[in-house]
């Protein structure tokens, strides 16, 4: 039931208009971070206030909302955000990726390919890909305007010199349509290829840092690399122990005091639907059999 003491989707209309204008400019200039007057939300900065504001500005009553954190629908912060929108927008919710019209995510892109008409909203902590190389906003803004991305390549190259390969495993920087270097939020680099040419609209919201950016559908997104060190979207060399999936991103779980480990899909909906379809992993039979 919608809470009548707040406006539809919590935000007042003026705030939504401001956010909507920022989203449209973000769509018009893919990968460019549009400043917006992020509001103080009733949840802490760093816990998805940017994503929540973008979702709130996009939702219509007919939407079906899915919220995931680390790929899972039932992690505490995902539960909390889903509940917020159930209460303030009264929208239907789902755990099934295919049924959702809007998906708010933290740190993952769902395994199942997204479709036209879906919107994926990312929660972003630090939207500036150059931030850890140059902490000043006044400087990084200039670097983006001049397309001066040498510093980023130097950093990646130094990684190679020191470690033999690029030492960035998540929030791996990308170049959008050959123009802006963009932070894809802290998704594992395994997810990076899904950013490019997606039929879905991807929106990124950073509340504390007051930035919104976007990837329209079918936008070309390239992970930065070198000819002799091509981008490698690797993941743990295991199959899911519950559903047997070989190509999904895995959580590592420590199962006993001796340090035994198992690997399970981080995308809980993907894993569940595979198991329902009869797929069984190394330890899945026992789990499914209820022994």
């Amino acid at each position: 039931m919608t809470d009548q003491s707040y406006n539809f989707a919590y935000l007042d209309e003026q705030t939504k208009r401001m956010i909507r204008r920022a989203i449209l400019k973000g769509v018009a200039v893919p990968g460019y971070q549009v400043p917006f007057a992020s509001r103080e939300m009733p949840m802490p900065y760093g816990w998805g206030t940017g994503g929540v504001q973008v979702t709130a500005a996009c939702l219509v009553p007919e939407d079906v909302l899915k919220v995931i954190d680390q790929g899972a629908d039932d992690t505490t912060n995902a539960v909390s955000i889903r509940k917020f929108f159930q209460r303030t927008a009264g929208v239907a919710t789902t755990e099934a990726t295919a049924e959702a019209t809007v998906i708010q995510t933290r740190h993952r892109i769902p395994e199942q390919a997204l479709t036209a008409g879906q919107i994926l909203v990312y929660q972003v902590p630090i939207p500036e890909p150059l931030r850890f190389l140059e902490p000043r906003e006044t400087e990084t803004r200039k670097m983006h305007s001049l397309e001066e991305y040498g510093l980023m390549h130097v950093k990646l190259y130094e990684d190679i010199a020191r470690h033999g390969s690029i030492a960035t495993a998540y929030a791996y920087p990308v170049r959008v349509e050959g123009r802006y270097v963009m932070d894809p939020s802290p998704i594992p680099k395994f997810d990076n290829p899904k950013l490019s040419d997606s039929p879905a609209l991807q929106l990124f919201g950073a509340g504390r840092e007051q930035r919104i950016y976007a990837l329209p559908p079918f936008t070309r997104v390239v992970s930065l690399d070198f000819d002799d060190h091509p981008f490698d979207p690797s993941k743990a060399p295991h199959d899911c122990d519950l559903c047997g999936a070989a190509e999904s991103y895995l959580d590592e779980v420590i199962t006993d005091d001796a340090g035994s480990r198992m690997f399970v899909c981080s995308d809980t909906d993907f894993c569940r639907s595979r198991r329902e379809a009869g797929h069984v992993g190394r330890l899945g039979e026992t789990a499914g059999g209820g022994a």
Binding site: N7, F8, A9, E13, K16, R17, R20, I23, L24, V27, A28, A57, C58, L59, V60, P61, L201, A214, P216, P217
Partner: peptide, 17 residues
Amino acid sequence: PTQSARAFRAILDALSR
């Protein structure tokens, strides 16, 4: 609140496609 939300989604759809 709901009319502007639906209108925005239509505009968003048009500009992003």
